[in-house]
Nucleic acid binder design. Structure first.
Lengths: 195, 195
DNA sequence: CCCACATCGAACCGATCGGTACCATCTCCC
DNA sequence: GGGAGATGGTACCGATCGGTTCGATGTGGG
């Protein structure tokens, strides 16, 4: 066993902890809203440890965004699959999950999109594009299974609804009404495509 | 005439020029992406002038956002009114104008929403909420004139489409397809409300 | 037992941050 | 022509930025 699996000084475990803590504070305060010093204080690690694991603040940010994209997409995919085979039920489940998300106290919009807004340079921009592509694939899949006349178009429209609802929930309504509005719009669009 | 109306050293004109130049660079680089020194260099003014007119960088940012919100809302309202009385034509015109916007080389999403994403404190957040309210009023007006069954709901859904298209155009498609997709969705929603 | 390794805490680096002060210059109005 | 006010340029301020380095501490496996 080349990799030590001890409980206390396990680099992998440390890295995972740093990633989790950094994800929270970077989301809550913004990428430029918290310096490395405070970041270290918050995650309970020294600068040296942080830089050994991630190389730079941008490296940490990239790792955080990558992990978060994976997590969120997996989370939504699970919610859709758990809703059974009916596309309408799947859409309903998806937007209900979003409503739960919007209701959470620290909700500040989509972390990946927010990051790309703050840093419009390759790492963040690329990740955001990929993130939206993943969303699109999930939504287009639902449109296809629903027998929509133009599943690709409907998938893109559902993506617009999802992102729009997230923005509106973040910056407009404190309520989660945006998710409900988007859900009804999604179902109406699906119906208008004969599905 | 208590206020000097000279051509050269006119504070009002200076302020307007600073505002216009600052709007561009702050939008292009992000609120935290450009320092006050570089900002002054870009707008061709000294620090003292900038601080005399706006008090602080945040003061400048607030003035920029306020002016931009006014301008954009006025711009969209004009496009809607120029399309004549037919609500469907008005919606079409609105999303066509958005498509033009998305196509512009320096497009980086909605400046006000972006700002609120970067600074989730009172000035920016409040302005973003008001900005979305103005959009909502414009869109709900269209929904009402179209005779929609639930104009308030439809107005909120159109707002979600507008903001969603803006986000997708910014972070996903380099194409302006998002505006066309949203337009079709908007018309379909309008139809599904019997209008 | 001991050495390799992970970690912490703090000092330190140059650069840049937002903001202030000072002064020479220019333009306008009287 | 002279004085008031707006401006540009620059030096400067303390604070913070991202990042590096070093020594002390503690843990684990051989």
């Amino acid at each position: 066993m080349p990799v030590p699996k001890g409980t206390a000084l396990d680099p992998d475990r440390t890295r995972a902890t740093l990633l989790a803590s950094a994800t929270e504070i970077l989301y809550a305060r913004g990428l430029d809203g918290v310096g490395v010093a405070e970041l270290c204080r918050a995650v309970g690690a020294s600068k040296e440890t942080l830089y050994r694991h991630f190389g730079s603040k941008d490296g940490l940010v990239e790792a955080v965004l990558e992990a978060r994209s994976d997590r969120v997409v997996h989370w939504l995919t699970e919610a859709v699959e758990a809703a059974g085979p009916d596309p309408r039920a799947q859409l309903t489940a998806l937007f209900d999950v979003l409503a739960d998300w919007y209701r959470q106290p620290g909700f500040r919009g989509c972390a990946i999109v927010n990051a790309a807004t703050q840093r419009h340079t390759p790492p963040a921009r690329t990740l955001a594009d990929r993130h939206l592509s993943r969303y699109g694939a999930l939504l287009t899949g639902i449109a296809e299974r629903a027998g929509a006349r133009e599943p690709a178009l409907l998938g893109r429209q559902l993506l617009i609804l999802l992102e729009g609802a997230t923005v509106v929930a973040d910056h407009h309504d404190p309520h989660d009404r945006a998710a409900e509005d988007a859900k009804q719009a999604a179902l109406a669009l699906l119906s208008s495509q004969g599905a």
